[in-house]
Amino acid sequence: MNAMKALKLEFYKARRKRYWLIAAAISAVQALWLIWGLRNMDASQLAQGYLHSLYQFAVLNSIVLPVMTGVLVSRMCDIEHKGSALRTLFTMQPSGSLFDAKFFCAGIHLAAVVGFQIATILMVGQIKGFSTPKPAGALVWYFGSQLLCSLFLALFLQILALRHINQFIPLSAGLITGFLGLMAMFFPEGVMRLVPSAYYGLLSPVHMDWNRAARTVSYYQVPFPIMDCMLLTAALVILYWFGRKQFMKREV
């Protein structure tokens, strides 16, 4: 089936469900958090404004986006369970097409959230007067990396949400992943790479240095973490292939 048509249909089915409201609420809270964090910074700190913002958002994302994605995806999948809609739908639409359309639809919402974060950073930078030029490369990299992590989580949670009628399962999986995202920085490097939400930080273009003696924070750009990026991409591809195949075998 035509992928564009399937995607349109997904948005049609989203009527009255207000998925964007969750995304908008989370984005607004994140924007306020950023503005709050910048409230009494001096000129030298503001010089690091862009890097500070990118770093802060990536950390925040690792905690908040898994939860938000869980809510979003489970709401999107629950409409198929309530009223046993799949029994009729699958006589008209291939199951793989539905799987893809749902994933795309979630992806578009997540891209909007990350895009809104970048817009927020640029806007706050303008208002607060971040003195360095806009780090275009880091911004693009940030967008790509944060979206990649979110897509992986969305896919993982979508597989759970479609498989189980009880939406408590994907919702709590989202919560747990968010919690692990919070804890990830305390894990050893190897273990950290097994936590999907840790990749928000691992793939972020900006890292932080905490100087204990001087009690100062400095941010710096890191080289592109090509191995981590490939690892997550490979995991995404495998999960997609496996999850889609399982879903297509499903009897309704």
Binding site: K13, R15, R16, K17, I79, K82, G83, S84, A85, L86, R87, T88, L89
Partner: peptide, 10 residues
């Protein structure tokens, strides 16, 4: 098939 199949919010 079996019980009705529909989107309740539509």
């Amino acid at each position: 098939i079996e019980s009705p199949s529909y989107y309740g919010h539509l």
